[in-house]
């Protein structure tokens, strides 16, 4: 395996990891502050992608499409928080899993009803298409590089928001002691809606950014959702830092495992068997990693409980 191919796959892993972080950040914030498992987070990813595809189709502008994805996902997030989610904070996890599973059914089928079963396509804008040459002679698609940068900017912004702003202080205080910050006169239910909408917007943005690489279709959020759960469980639920580390670990492991394992098995198996074994083990790898992490550290890498 050449260095160039290896470097390219590393970048793919990084890009995948960054997108997973955008998904996982909202999920882990919502769990950390409100103690809620939200299976419907993948539907918000899907809503973002559909909103972007619809707006890009109507206006032709990719920037407007991204804004639409943020706005639509945040609005959908706020709406479901106000109508359903806020009734679930005091319930046990079983009720939360079920109610948000029900939300998936409603949102997926609703989207299918509005947009039909055929996938939509979101095109990479002209100024971001084509490859760029990186130092070391690596040819890499400009768009993927752009989403790595965009994701990193959002990640830095999110860390700054949580570490430096008033809202961030309230979020951290909410994680530590809900009753106390309510007693200090902060409107806790507004804070919850805000956090939920923020997480939803990040998921929607991820959906739109990935939607330009893959097709935009109903159910696209589900595989990502499961991966995002793997991420936050590995990182420790509630920890943003854990989500970042977990996302990069999962992104890298999944991408590199898929590339390297078939080659590894090809050393001592015949090519077709090596591809089959390698590919199936490659897609199991992150789940194996998650199981190992949980067995070693039952509350994740950066978990507190």
């Amino acid at each position: 395996m050449t260095f160039l191919l290896f470097a390219e796959q590393m970048l793919n892993g990084l890009q995948f990891g960054i997108m997973l972080f955008l998904m996982a950040a909202g999920l882990t914030l919502v769990f950390g502050v409100m103690g809620l498992i939200n299976l419907a987070h993948g539907s918000l990813y899907m809503i973002g992608a559909f909103a972007a595809a619809a707006v890009a189709g109507a206006t032709g502008s990719f920037v407007l499409a991204l804004i639409a994805s943020l706005a639509a996902a945040a609005a959908a997030g706020a709406l479901i928080e106000l109508t359903v989610i806020r009734r679930l904070y005091k319930r046990d996890h079983l009720d939360q899993v079920l109610a948000t599973f029900a939300l998936i059914l409603i949102l997926s089928e609703g989207t299918r009803w509005v947009f039909g079963s055929f996938p939509l396509y979101l095109d990479v804008p002209g100024y971001l298409s084509g490859p760029v040459t990186l130092p070391g002679g690596i040819q890499y698609p400009l768009y993927r590089l752009a989403i790595i940068v965009a994701g990193l900017v959002v990640a830095v912004g999110l860390f700054a928001l949580i570490a430096r702003t008033r809202i961030g202080i309230q979020i951290r205080a909410g994680e530590a002691d809900r009753e106390m910050i309510a007693a200090l006169g902060i409107d806790i239910s507004r804070l919850y809606t805000l956090i939920f909408a923020l997480g939803a917007a990040l998921a929607g943005l991820a959906g739109a950014l990935v939607g330009a690489i893959q097709s935009v279709q109903v159910g696209m959020g589900e595989s990502v959702l499961i991966l995002a759960f793997v991420v936050i469980v590995i990182g420790g639920i509630g920890s943003i830092k854990g989500a970042l580390v977990g996302a990069l670990l999962v992104g890298m492991t999944d991408t590199m495992g898929g590339v390297l394992l078939p080659r590894f098995f090809a050393l001592f198996l015949d090519p077709t068997a090596a591809t089959a074994v390698g590919a199936s083990l490659g897609s199991m790898l992150i789940y194996i990693m998650m199981a190992v992490v949980l067995i070693m550290r039952p509350s994740g890498l950066y978990g507190s409980a």
Partner: peptide
């Protein structure tokens, strides 16, 4: 069963997906 709560939900999910 070494884990509990939400981690148990997720690790069983992970084994299923595996």
């Amino acid at each position: 069963l070494r884990t509990s709560g939400v981690y148990f939900i997720m690790i069983t999910l992970a084994f299923g997906q595996m």
